[in-house]
Amino acid sequence: MFSSCADPNNLHGLTWLLCYLTTGKHIDFYWSFLTVLTLLAVTAPVALAFGFGGAMMSRSQRLPLRIIGKTYTAMVRGVPDIVFFLFFVIALDQGIEYFFHVVRCPDWTEPVRNGLEFRVCPEAKVPLNSSAQIWHSLYGFALAVVTFALVFGAFASNVLYGAMQAVPRAQLETAEAYGMNHGQVFRRVLVPQMWVYALPGLSNLWMILIKATPLLFLLGVQDIVYWARELGGAKTSAYAYPHPDWRLYYFLGLLVFYLAMTKISELVLTRIQTRLSHGQATASGEAQRKAAA
């Protein structure tokens, strides 16, 4: 980074530390914070979409759809997320490649499963073996997003289903009395009203999502936990900056990061809740009205 860091062996004290903290590896560490934040930003809407789909299916009048929706939602309460993460990514990856294999190589005769080996034709590899490294990274990231979104989508589905049920029945009946059909009632009355009921649950979910990100390294993303472990471990002089075991300090740093994230989220979410409750016929809306009066 700095030209003065060219020879780490001659550095001492603060300059050593400064050089140490700006090595290429540390820069990667700092970037990984951005990776985590990006993942949060991308996963939240995707999970919400999955959750919306799950909630709609659970409410469906068709039995098969309802069963799928309910099973999906029930899945999360039975299985620890970590177990799910451990085998689902490989399954998803193989599923995608198998799909391309069938599409792109219809003439392939060798078996795809050979004992434990999973072998598709070279054209079906996602991304192709020869693609630039960046595509492999992006693909890994996308797999992580989908896996996270599937798990947390099930949570969101639970929350949204509850919120849809919480919208007063009278509101929907009134809408029907006005001659709206099923879809119209759903779009114009149910969905706009449910958010107030869903927000506490969704806030909770956001907090959960933040706290689940240390499991990202299970999905093969180079996240902050991966780097904290890698950087903190004791280093012999095979490395340019040998040091003893500093993992404790790195993890304390992570602790501060997560606590800060939680605090900021709490502040923002409280503000949103206040705004959403404004003028609503709920306890907090009533409290606002009284305070103003």
Binding site: M207, K211, A212, T213, P214, L215, V225, R247, L248, F251, L252, L254, L255, Y258, L259, T262, K263
Partner: peptide
């Protein structure tokens, strides 16, 4: 409550063990 609810259990385990 803030410290235990605000940080991932994963990191709590690690720090506790190190301590």
């Amino acid at each position: 409550i803030f410290i235990f609810r605000g940080s991932p259990l994963f990191i709590q385990f690690f720090l506790a063990y190190e301590a």
